[in-house]
């Protein structure tokens, strides 16, 4: 069960310039492909600071922005919106494999 669904929790995200991969800003100010390492802002003010920090570190990425997340009891975080869920976890169906002659 989600512990915090208020929408106050936010992480900073962007796509990496070199390959477009989805990344999040961690506590050290590095971009990581692991959502579980993302720095979490817990209120609006911290969110603004996180976004400023993301923009300051924006050289290797494209247009950072904030993503509202929910936090589970065990500390795992998940984006609230479907779009961001898909950005975080990929396609919602199985893409066809390179060597497939038939789908599924």
């Amino acid at each position: 069960m989600a512990k915090n669904l208020s929408g106050d929790l936010q992480v900073a995200s962007a796509n990496r310039l070199s390959d477009g991969v989805v990344v999040w800003l961690d506590d050290a100010g590095e971009w990581t492909i692991r959502l579980d390492r993302a720095a979490v802002a817990r209120d609006g003010r911290t969110g603004e600071i996180l976004l400023l920090r993301a923009r300051a570190e924006a050289f290797p990425v494209i247009d950072p922005f904030l993503v509202a997340v929910a936090e589970e009891e065990d500390g795992t975080i998940e984006p609230l919106s479907l779009r961001e869920k898909i950005r975080a976890s990929g396609l919602t169906f199985d893409a066809i494999a390179a060597d497939a002659v038939r789908y599924a």
């Binding site: 169906f93 893409a95 066809i96 390179a98 002659v101 038939r102 789908y103 599924a104």
Partner: peptide, 17 residues
């Protein structure tokens, strides 16, 4: 558009076939 497949998608092997 095989049944149940993403419309318009083809794998590399299918393209070669």
């Amino acid at each position: 558009k095989p049944v149940g497949a993403p419309p318009g998608d083809a794998s590399a092997v299918q393209m070669e076939g």
